[in-house]
Design a protein around this nucleic acid. Structure first.
Length: 216
DNA sequence: AGCCAGGACTGAG
DNA sequence: CTCAGTCATGGC
């Protein structure tokens, strides 16, 4: 039997189709993108990623050996470039300390690897989960501001004051444990919310308001 | 001209 | 533990 969470997924899917996220060519790039996109539009992030690629820095070795000031300059379009350079470096140091071809990302129990990522400075829940889901196909549901806002207005108003973990648990309780499904679902939520915010105002029939109109 | 974007950390109370 | 302040650029 189908619950509401699955119904909403089917609606979104029929409306927007398969998204096939993450828009990144390598696992390293997915990690970099996940950090750069913190509170930042993907449009800006993609400029920063292009800059890094143009300088051949989109791999562990090159990035690790690059001048921090150069990194800052290249990621400037993504904003918060001082912190983000530090966060990227922190993650890269972690990777260097566990040089096992990402084996631990695949093999450790998901709770363990998640905890490990969360202990890295600059890696919060959404970033950690995005990396695990989109980079390594681990079945963990990513929650973001869009998810909270959309579903709060779709009848799950309790989400407005719920914690990240509570909302995540709810989605995972109501869906089969399927990384491909989690991948598509979160992507569809983001695509849907972006589409709605583009043609504002609409709200009543689309069940969501744009940020400026929402009551937080 | 503001307001916002696919957050996370810090310090205060 | 809750929460405002902080970090910064580009698009609309």
């Amino acid at each position: 039997m189908e619950n509401d969470i699955i119904k909403i997924y089917n609606e979104l899917y029929s409306q927007y189709g398969m998204q096939n996220w993450w828009p990144g060519e390598s696992q390293f790039e997915i990690i970099v993108g996940a950090i750069l996109t913190q509170n930042t539009s993907w449009n800006n992030v993609s400029k920063a990623i292009d800059n890094l690629k143009r300088h051949d820095l989109m791999d562990l070795e090159s990035f690790a050996n690059a001048d921090p000031d150069l990194i800052k300059k290249l990621i400037t379009p993504a904003g918060f470039y001082n912190i983000k350079q530090k966060r990227l470096t922190a993650f890269i140091n972690y990777l260097i300390n566990h040089k096992d071809n990402f084996n631990r990302f695949y093999q450790l129990p998901i709770a363990d690897i998640r905890k490990e990522l969360l202990s890295i400075n600059g890696i919060g829940k959404e970033t950690a989960d995005s990396i695990l889901l989109y980079g390594f196909e681990r079945p963990i549901f990513v929650i973001d501001a869009y998810t909270k806002r959309l579903f709060s207005r779709l009848g799950f108003s309790w989400m407005k004051k719920a914690t990240y973990d509570e909302i995540q648990q709810f989605f995972m309780d109501n869906l089969p444990l399927d990384s491909k499904l989690f991948n598509e679902y979160h992507a569809l939520i983001v695509v849907h919310c972006k589409a709605l915010c583009k043609k504002k105002p609409l709200c009543s029939e689309c069940h969501i308001t744009c940020p400026s109109q929402s009551n937080k």
